[in-house]
Amino acid sequence: MSSAGGQRPAANRMTLQTFKARLGGASKGFKLLKKKRDALKSRFQALLKDIVDTKLKVGESLKDGAFALAKAHYASSGDDIASSIVERAKKPSVTTKMYPDNVAGVSIPVFKVLRNASQEAIAHTMGVGSGGAVLNATRDTYLKAVECIVQLASLQTAFHTLDEEIKMTSRRVNALEYVLIPRIEDIIHYITQEMDEQAREEFFRVKKVVEKKKVKLAKEKEQAEKNEAAIDAPSILQKKDADIVF
């Protein structure tokens, strides 16, 4: 793999060291992120199952609610329940609160239902004339439905958050696995190659120098011999001294 047109760094021992350190960091990060992704994914799968279950439950409970409402309509003898309920509704008795939950370092919002029964006191006087019991039953049925819906909302939000997170983590894992680490390896490979090359060059140069020197020496030696022969006059000393080269 090429270095994608990136600038080749200077090939020396120091850069090699830095790149080796970077490679170590990247592969450590890669391993960690992969672990995180797997954890998220396993959570995600569990969540999917939960969501399907809850969705079915919501459908069921809403059906129950609609049925209970039909019952209430029947019991309140055609009075318009909706408007009297709207008239009474002032403060919500059911609220949701968000708590953070932590999965592999990702904070996921979890919604919880809070019910303040005291706010419902007004609604209790509904249908005192007739059908009050049925209305109360309807309210309870719908309350269950609301709880299911909130649970579903919580799961869905977690689903979305996890989905985003998994996508991001996968992108990072892939980027590390297929781009960053190969690039660093490539560079390291290049640097080592380059350094080998340099070493070989150096070796060759030294060899060359030695060779040249030898040649030069030989030449000089020859010259000296020639000179000696040319002179060839009886030496002043006559006697050849072994220590004297020239």
Partner: peptide
């Protein structure tokens, strides 16, 4: 009915 439905109120 009024009596019965007023029990919780």
């Amino acid at each position: 009915n009024i009596t019965l439905n007023s029990f919780d109120t």
